[in-house]
Nucleic acid binder design. Structure first.
Lengths: 212, 212
DNA sequence: TCTTTTCCATACGCTAGCGTATTGACAAGG
DNA sequence: CCTTGTCAATACGCTAGCGTATGGAAAAGA
């Protein structure tokens, strides 16, 4: 019995529902699917317990398998980390470009929409991952690089909306930085406590940021 | 057996002189001061590695003692946690009220100053603790309560400045929430990466927040 | 001087978790 | 049928870390 270390092709071909019913391409499909399954479960733990709680055996228990399976699909813990980072990077960039594709004349509404989408009150799970990634990035260079790249794209896309709305490149950049600082910062203020939603405050701030 | 007498931080040394003067109070004073030494070291670890890295034996090694000392001063790990939280709570509230005591007519300059003080670029260590506390608060109810209390005071003090500057209570609250969301959020954007400081953007945003 | 108190060192048992080695089950293909 | 490849279970050694028990040194009191 020879063991092959599976080094991943990072492109996640998410073909759901083909778990066992496939016959021909099942080998490759099942491989990537299993890695994707581990990564997906890793996300759930990451959002709840942070990168420090992302442990191999805990993850295995969550998936009702043993770590023997994990070390078949992943070389080690770092391998999983890289897969999680890559998944997050691709997913976020894709999401941003979807969120910031505005029709002409609707830029301001689109910006308000972006603020709402990233609001912790409406997207608690997504924001938990966001904060976990940033906490991770403060102690890990690779995570920091990924977060920096995603932020760069985010700022660029938001700035483009501001510019299309008539602002100068400088002010567009300023407001983009403020926008993302706010949406992440507001989640830091409200996440731990059970503060009232304060929708009025959120609306007021969103208007201030998005309106020139 | 040979023993190494490694001194605790300087605060412990200065008070050891007081022990000889007062006998009865020295016991209590030394106890709390030694606790303070542990708490201070805990801060350093907290800012660097987060609450997950705050381990008893690591902390002891940092102080060049064994954990035998730790368990003399603290009942357990949770005891240290509570001491750290209390220290942070008292220190932050004291600091806020100092930072927001404005002379009449200088409220706006004072608000800009608050934004600058909390800027990650100028106060990296303090912001690291701030972020670590908030990450901690996401998974610990006690930490969440402390952070919520500090935030409440912060928002109240900032809102008072805005009101003294002539804003309505509602807008004063809105802008206070924006102010603290921004200062914490901007640190999330810049902490992991080595982004340029962008002082111009910071100034522009500070003016937008503090100026009606 | 003798005793008590204070503070730290040492040794111990225990658990969680990482990574490896080995075995086994099962399906596909020759 | 037998071989091979795929994936998971099991067992193992190892480290880090928590909390306890105990000893020991030194200062403070008596």
């Amino acid at each position: 019995m020879e063991k092959k270390r599976n080094k991943l092709p990072a492109t996640a071909d998410t073909t759901k529902g083909l778990i066992k019913a496939t016959a021909k391409t099942s080998a490759t499909a099942k491989l990537t699917l299993d890695r994707a399954g581990w990564v997906k479960a890793a996300y759930a733990i990451l959002s709840k317990d942070g990168i420090g709680g992302l442990r191999v055996e805990v993850l295995a228990k969550k998936l009702h398998v043993t770590k023997g399976s994990f070390y078949w699909h992943f070389r080690d813990r770092k391998d999983l980390h890289q897969a999680v980072l890559e998944e997050w990077r691709v997913g976020r960039i894709s999401d941003i470009q979807k969120q910031t594709s505005a029709t002409a004349g609707q830029e301001q509404a689109q910006l308000v929409h972006v603020i709402e989408v990233y609001s912790a009150a409406r997207n608690r799970h997504g924001m938990a991952i966001e904060l976990a990634m940033r906490d991770w990035a403060r102690r890990d260079a690779l995570a920091a690089a990924v977060v920096a790249e995603v932020d760069k794209v985010r700022l660029h896309c938001a700035a483009k909306l501001f510019e299309q709305h008539g602002l100068s490149p400088e002010e567009a950049h300023h407001r983009s930085v403020l926008l993302y600082s706010y949406v992440f910062g507001i989640s830091l203020l409200t996440f731990g406590s059970h503060v009232a939603n304060e929708q009025q405050t959120r609306d007021w701030i969103a208007r201030l940021i998005a309106t020139q």
